[in-house]
Design a protein around this nucleic acid. Structure first.
Lengths: 157, 157
DNA sequence: TATCTGAGTTTACTTTTCCATACTCAGCCA
DNA sequence: TGGCTGAGTATGGAAAAGTAAACTCAGATA
């Protein structure tokens, strides 16, 4: 990964993920889904996000298969849509927990974080860790990035 | 975490992290730092990012303590600044690896990812995992989010 | 002394995104 | 029939991002 190399960066998995969840509000919408929100009005109230953006982001998340719509019916009201997370959306949890963890460490209030993540089965605190296939815990500086099967050079100009 | 509760969301660690790294280009700049870039011209060439935004983002990352400037000197040239990652920046690795992993799974080219992460010591593939303090591997659906010490309700209007 | 280079800054313009607010629409209910 | 409610859509102005090019600045080189 020599920086002087003209790597083609168009198939980077980080950039491609950010195309889906890199817009303002998108990750915060997912946060609210994990915390239990499912209705348009829930998201609007707790996030304070403009309604048109909220509608656009929700539609995009559904198109991408990260959320799915179901219907709910309050007694005395007609059926309305709600948003639930899919397995594909669940797979974003490690990334978002990584953001949460960094914020807890460097930007939390003096008294601590606003939300704690616990293992439902044992109640212990949960965090994200980098590990290798052999089970070793890996420090960030011990990660080596090497070209993969889809590695490409920039086409000549 | 009842969605009907009017949680005060202003001290969320996810939102606070996104204030720092949630802008376009910022995470991609960090990606390039991990891959070995350190100079203004490296970032500009590989990212294709506008120079004025690149300067703004680099300045912000240095102010936040995620990058630091050092000087380098090529023989026959004067000393110039370069950007290196700090321990605070290294702590963003789990979050960014989470994004990488999701992109590898759902948005990679058919032949696979463009970059592979290996454990320098043993060469095995590296990934991010959610685990609890007791060492259990935790599935996303087994995470329970509970109010922490800085949990607050929205001030009454 | 003049020129070149890398690392920016500045400026000017276009495009996109964001935000706030108003409006619509469908069904329930009085 | 008319009002109410949740879930949107429409719109117009403000802010941010993108593009392109010129300008600066310090030291190295010719």
């Amino acid at each position: 990964m020599d920086p002087r190399l003209d790597r083609d960066v168009s198939n980077c998995s980080i950039a491609r993920t950010l195309e889906v969840v890199g817009e303002k509000w998108t990750i915060l919408i997912l946060r609210e889904v994990w915390y239990g929100s499912s209705r348009f009005s829930d998201f609007e109230r707790v996030l304070g996000c403009p309604r048109n953006l909220l509608a656009t982001r929700l539609r995009m998340l559904v198109e991408e298969g990260i959320l799915a719509t179901e219907t709910y019916k309050e007694p005395g009201s007609r059926s309305r849509p709600k948003y639930v997370i899919t397995p594909k959306g669940m797979d974003l949890v490690p990334a978002v927990m990584g953001l949460l963890q960094w914020g807890d460490r460097y930007r939390a209030d003096p008294e601590g974080p606003a939300v704690l993540a616990r293992h439902r089965a044992c109640g212990a605190h949960v965090d994200v860790q980098v590990r290798c296939e052999r089970g070793h815990s890996v420090q960030a500086e011990d990660i080596e990035s090497v070209p993969g099967p889809a590695f490409r050079m920039k086409p000549a100009e």
